[in-house]
C-alpha cells in the first residue's frame, strides 16, 4: 500500500516536472517553428501555423541581409573573453575567501552580490561617458571589460562555493610538500575544482552571450554581437516574426550546442575520481 502511494507520487512528480519543463521550453520551440514559415503564415492562428508550409525562406533572407559571422565572432570574443578574464581575477579572490576567511569575508561577499541589485540603467550614463572619453564606444574591449565586471560577483560566488567543498587539508598538504602559493593553486586547487570551474565558465559564457543591455547600448557597427543582430529584425511597422525567429534561432544555436556538449563533460567531471 505504502509502495503504491510512492509510485503514484513519483508519477505525479514526473508528470509535473515534464509539464514545467515543457512550459519553459515552449517559447523556444515556438520560435523554432515560426522560423520555418513565411511571414504571412507566422501571424496565423497557432493551429494554422503548424499545418502551413515549412520553408527555409526566413533563414535565407537573414543570411543574405546580415553579416552573421561577424556578429557571431563578436559574441564569441566578448563572452569568452569576459569570462576568462573574470575567472583569472576570481580564482585568487575566491581562494582567499574560501581558505583564509577574515572577519569581513561574509560582508564582502554580500556586498559584491548587492552590486547585482542595482539596475544597470542606473550607471548607464557614467559608463557611456567613460567609454566615450576613452574612445571605447563600439569596441569589443569595452564590452569584454564591462561584462567581466558585471559577472564577476557571480563568478566569485560560484567559485567560492566550489572551493569551500575542497578539504583544506589537501591544500595544507601541498604547502607542506613545498608548493608555493602559485603552485598550490595551479597543481592542486584548480585541477580539483575543474568541474566547478567548468560550470562557472559555461554559465557565465551563457550569461555574457545573452546580455542585451550593454551590448546594445555600447555598440554600433563594429563590435555588435548577436544580440544586436536579433534586435535588427524587430520592426514597428511590418511583419517580422518569422525573420526575427530565424535570427533568434541562429543566435542561440551556438550556445545551445555548446551547452549540450559541455553538459556531458560536466557530468563526467563530477563523477570522475571521487575524493575519499
Amino acid at each position: 500500500m505504502a509502495r503504491a502511494v510512492t509510485t503514484q507520487r513519483k508519477t505525479i512528480n514526473t508528470v509535473i516536472a515534464w509539464i514545467v519543463g515543457f512550459l519553459i521550453f515552449f517559447p523556444i520551440l515556438w520560435i523554432f517553428i515560426l522560423s520555418f514559415h513565411t511571414e504571412g503564415d507566422a501571424i496565423k492562428h497557432p493551429f494554422e501555423v503548424l499545418t502551413s508550409r515549412w520553408t527555409f525562406e526566413s533563414y535565407a533572407t537573414v543570411q543574405e541581409r546580415s553579416n552573421y559571422f561577424r556578429h557571431f565572432w563578436n559574441s564569441v570574443v566578448i563572452s569568452v573573453g569576459s569570462t576568462v578574464i573574470g575567472l583569472i581575477i576570481a580564482v585568487p579572490s575566491a581562494w582567499a575567501m574560501a581558505f583564509v576567511p577574515g572577519r569581513r569575508t561574509k560582508d564582502v561577499l554580500m556586498w559584491m552580490l548587492s552590486t547585482k541589485m542595482l539596475p544597470p540603467v542606473g550607471v548607464l550614463l557614467p559608463i557611456y561617458l567613460i567609454c566615450q572619453n576613452l574612445g571605447l564606444l563600439d569596441t569589443r574591449v569595452a564590452l569584454v571589460f564591462i561584462l567581466m565586471m558585471i559577472n564577476l560577483p557571480i563568478i566569485i560566488w560560484m567559485l567560492y562555493t566550489y572551493f569551500r567543498e575542497i578539504p583544506g587539508e589537501i591544500l595544507e598538504a601541498a604547502r607542506m610538500d613545498g608548493a608555493s602559493l602559485r603552485n598550490e593553486v595551479i597543481y592542486v586547487l584548480l585541477p580539483m575544482a575543474v568541474p566547478g570551474i567548468a560550470s562557472t565558465l559555461l554559465l557565465n559564457i551563457i550569461l555574457a552571450w545573452n546580455e542585451a543591455f550593454w551590448t546594445l547600448t555600447l555598440t554600433a557597427a563594429k563590435a555588435a554581437p548577436l544580440t544586436a543582430f536579433i534586435a535588427s529584425y524587430s520592426s514597428p511597422e511590418g511583419l517580422f516574426y518569422a525573420k526575427l525567429s530565424a535570427a533568434s534561432i541562429m543566435a542561440i544555436a551556438p550556445i545551445l550546442i555548446m551547452g549540450w556538449f559541455s553538459q556531458k563533460q560536466l557530468v563526467r567531471g563530477l563523477t570522475f575520481g571521487a575524493v575519499k
Binding site: P167, E169, E172, A173, A174, M176, Y187, V188, P191, V275
Partner: peptide, 15 residues
C-alpha cells in the same frame, strides 16, 4: 623542510 601525514591522508585525488 618538514613532512606531514594527515589523519585524512590528504592525498591529491586527481593524481
Amino acid at each position: 623542510g618538514l613532512a606531514m601525514v594527515f589523519q585524512s591522508y590528504a592525498l591529491y585525488p586527481h593524481m
